[in-house]
Design a protein around this nucleic acid. Structure first.
Length: 477
RNA sequence: GGCCCGGUCGCCUAGCGGUCUAGGGCGCUUCCCUUUCAAGGAAGAGGUCAUGGGUUCGAAUCCCAUCCGGGCUACCA
């Protein structure tokens, strides 16, 4: 069987992390099957909600993630066009066919009437749904009116019975047809609704498996009915559990970052995003959980996807991010770090210090603050941290002053020699090495934590370290 | 309101009728390592498997009910 799967975002904004997870699963499916094809289709049938730049953002985000696809608006392919607004005639012809087959009908109800109808139904405590007012208009009359009056096309939904699907994730799900209204298929502006467009496109583009978010499960019966009206086979469907915010509701803006580009800006690695995201809703059934994109293609299985929604967990993402940062080679880490560092910073110095902080960052964005002391002159001292706890200011001045003396003529100014010198000073003033390094670190970097001290001093250089030690002494005194 | 879905440690999850005195990871705590912080190593706290009934020799696993949570309910996707 030829696998053809698709991801079909609406260009209504930038790429949501939940869509990325859905796309990832489709991508795994396509790549783990010989000859599998992944298709990008833009679902822009709602002309009111188009967001400028959304398609660019979808392309950027997905490419950044390392997801490649085979057919799409910019890639082309044998089943184009891949943008729904460019496929209007296809939908219109198909809708007309349903009308001709008496499976659908013209509806002339105005939006005002529909609004009133719903209000009245609500007032009576009834279920709000279309009252099928136009369903009984004689076909000839309807056709004549349609030539001149604004109208939509609605599906004739059977009044009784049930419709069901055997979902790859959720299993058998059944709906009473009574609960489904006569769906609008074609809007009065000639655009299809989502319900019509997906079904036609999935069929015509020969999509073999429909993997989409759980929110679509409730509208699946509508799609099933459209398949039935056309007499088409229904491809296997899999609904993927939602990605939730910490409060259990669908992950949304108010929960913080939700867009790929935001995570990218915050310094997350695509490797970490893919690894973390794949594990929300899927597990290999073993205790392994560190997976590259290729590993995931090899390991992921739709029957291991679970039903319950998963909550977004920033701590866990951070863990995976740190892990993947540590896996990078120094050169690769450097390459990814440049965009997060000021362009004027000395490249050679950055190159030397980065290995020292590689295992100290959870995100790429954190690197800057950790090494800024090497690129900032004069240094802003934080007076409150210059004196170690349980030490007196005067003793600290003495210790720093001895350190200054010890380092001033040290040659070569390299970590092992610096370590020796500092150990000697500590012994001399009766301090623990620990306390002394705390004081020196504060004096020289202005921070309480940072890369290893001896290495930091060596990179700073004697000429910059000594003045900092001196000004710190003045500040304390 | 109607329809549908879900419910295992704070979070991601394993589990598919006996091997479960419920396993792993994140986070948390403690210890070790140590020039800070990390990283790494070790240990630990944390779960009446939503609740109540069944079925069964035996249930987190099957059935029913209840509760709680969520989604959908548009000429939005």
């Amino acid at each position: 069987m030829t696998v053809r799967v698709r991801f079909a975002p609406s260009p209504t904004g930038s790429l949501h992390i939940g869509s990325v997870r859905t796309t990832l699963y489709n991508y795994f499916m396509a790549r783990q099957n010989e000859g599998g094809t992944l298709i990008l289709r833009i679902e822009d049938t709602d002309q009111d909600r188009l967001a400028p730049g959304a398609i660019d953002s979808i392309y950027d985000g997905l490419h950044w993630m390392g997801i490649e696809w085979d057919e799409g608006p910019r890639e082309g392919g044998a089943f184009g066009p891949y943008v729904q607004s460019e496929r209007l005639p296809i939908y219109q012809q198909h809708a007309a066919r349903l009308v001709a087959d008496a499976a659908a009908y013209f509806c002339f109800c105005t939006k005002e009437r529909l609004t009133q109808m719903r209000a009245a139904q609500q007032a009576r405590g009834e279920i709000t749904r279309y009252d099928r007012h136009c369903r009984t208009i004689a076909p000839d009359e309807a056709a004549t009116r349609a030539a001149s009056e604004p109208h939509v096309i609605r599906l004739k939904v059977p009044e009784d019975g049930t419709i069901a699907i055997d979902d790859l994730v959720f299993g058998h799900v059944e709906w009473p047809l009574r609960s489904i209204e006569d769906q609008v298929l074609l809007k009065s502006d000639g655009f299809p609704t989502y319900q019509l467009a997906v079904v036609i496109d999935d069929h015509v583009m020969e999509i073999s498996h429909v993997f989409r978010g759980e929110d679509w499960l409730p509208s699946t019966p509508k799609h099933l009915l459209v398949y039935r009206a056309f007499g088409w086979d229904v491809p296997p469907h899999a609904h993927l559990p939602n990605v939730l915010g910490p409060d259990g509701k669908k992950l949304a803006k108010r929960h913080g970052a939700t867009k790929v580009e935001e995570f990218r800006k915050e310094g997350y690695l695509p490797e970490a995003m893919a690894n973390y995201l794949s594990l929300v809703g899927w597990s290999p059934g073993t205790e392994e959980e560190i997976f590259s994109l290729d590993d995931l293609v090899r390991r992921w299985r739709i029957d291991q996807v679970q039903k319950a929604g998963g909550k977004w967990d920033r701590d866990r993402l951070n863990f995976f991010n740190g892990l993947w940062i540590r896996k990078l080679s120094s050169d690769e880490l450097l390459r990814r770090l440049w965009p997060f560092l000021p362009a004027e910073w000395d490249r050679d110095l950055v190159r030397q210090v980065v290995p020292l902080i590689q295992e100290r960052m959870a995100t790429l964005a954190e690197a800057k603050d950790q090494i800024a002391f090497l690129f900032t002159d004069p240094l802003e001292h934080d007076r409150s941290i210059l004196v170690p706890k349980k030490r007196e200011p005067q003793d600290t001045v003495t210790a720093l002053s001895r350190t200054t003396v010890a380092l001033r003529f040290l040659d070569p100014f390299v970590p092992p020699r610096i370590e020796q010198a500092i150990a000697a000073v500590a012994a001399d003033v009766g301090w623990t090495v620990r306390d002394l390094t705390i004081a020196i670190r504060a004096a020289v970097t202005g921070r309480k934590v940072g890369p290893p001290l001896y290495e930091s001093l060596a990179l700073l250089g004697k000429d910059r370290a000594i003045p900092r030690l001196e000004s710190a002494q003045e500040l304390i005194g």
